[in-house]
């Protein structure tokens, strides 16, 4: 029976899909059979970040409507054997998903995977609610920036009120904070909210801090989740995040500005 994890934020563009792709890849790299699902119906992008956009034949809505089986629609990831991608439909709108349909697909996924990662659309409307409804755990992705922190706070309230667990009076969803695009040098200069500031404001346990890094853009350009770039600081930070999620003790890294020698500054390595 799989654990369902929603990756959510409220605000758009903070790194939900990047995090979903790397987090799911990380779970798979550690031997867990994992599915990652794009809930952004009409604006699918997970397929691009995972680099499987040319292999999409069927999507989530086709499976929900029994036009294809789940097995037919799941795309095996090219980088990890244990990982499968369920793309969103690009031609329908967000109302194409129904409560009963999603319930059935989620149940089928739970039966055959260890982890199901749900990449939520931005906003707090139907699509986002569908994505979080079945969650057992939530990764709340937040940038160190005022509007993102506020939207994350709002999303935490929605997780506590509108999820299946909340509606049915079950155990609350386990929430984790993932701070992305963190720039330690700007924090040091007092220009950016620090981890402590954000944690104080949101009071959610911190799972990971992903430093701002050029490699994230390279990774999405290439369609290979950044976690596979083990030289990059953000790739390493995602590895740590997955390890912590699985119960390992790992100290947070990349929180202080990197000291650059004059030569490194000059050559930008």
């Amino acid at each position: 029976m799989a654990k369902v994890i929603v990756v959510t934020s409220g605000k758009g563009g903070v790194g939900k899909t990047t995090t979903s792709a790397s987090f799911a890849s990380g779970l798979a790299l550690r031997g867990h059979k994992t599915a990652v699902i794009d809930f952004d119906i009409g604006l699918r992008n997970l397929d691009l970040i995972m680099g499987c956009e040319r292999r999409v034949v069927y999507d989530f809505v086709n499976v929900q409507n029994n036009e294809a089986s789940l097995k037919q629609a799941l795309i095996r990831d090219k980088n990890s054997d244990n990982l499968y991608v369920l793309p969103a439909s690009q031609t329908r709108d967000k109302d194409a998903l129904t409560q009963e349909g999603v319930e059935r697909v989620m149940q089928e996924l739970r039966d055959s995977f260890d982890y199901v990662v749900c990449d939520s659309p931005a906003g707090i409307e139907k699509g986002a609610i569908m994505a979080l409804y079945h969650a057992d755990e939530a990764l709340v992705v937040t940038n160190p920036e005022v509007s993102s922190v506020r939207d994350s706070d709002r999303m935490l309230g929605i997780l506590a009120a509108k999820s299946k667990r909340a509606v049915e009076g079950g155990e609350p969803i386990r929430e984790h904070l993932v701070i992305t695009r963190y720039a330690p040098n700007r924090v040091a200069q007092g220009e950016m909210l620090s981890i402590d500031d954000i944690q104080e404001l949101l009071s959610v346990p911190l799972l990971g801090v992903i430093p701002e890094s050029e490699s994230v853009l390279h990774a999405s350009n290439a369609g290979i989740p950044v976690i596979h770039d083990s030289k990059s600081t953000s790739g390493q930070a995602y590895h740590d995040t997955v390890a912590r999620f699985l119960g390992e003790q790992k100290a947070m890294r990349f929180l202080v500005p990197e000291k650059k020698s004059i030569i490194r500054r000059l050559f930008g390595t």
Partner: peptide
């Protein structure tokens, strides 16, 4: 921008991104 970066070839990943987008946008249209 650092000295070396100016001299160095620009990274090829943007070209890969453009090519992938051309394919997928044509298909979606």
């Amino acid at each position: 921008m650092s000295l070396l970066r100016r001299v160095r070839q620009p990274s090829a990943s943007a070209a890969v991104a453009k090519e992938r987008l051309q394919v997928i946008l044509a298909r979606e249209n």
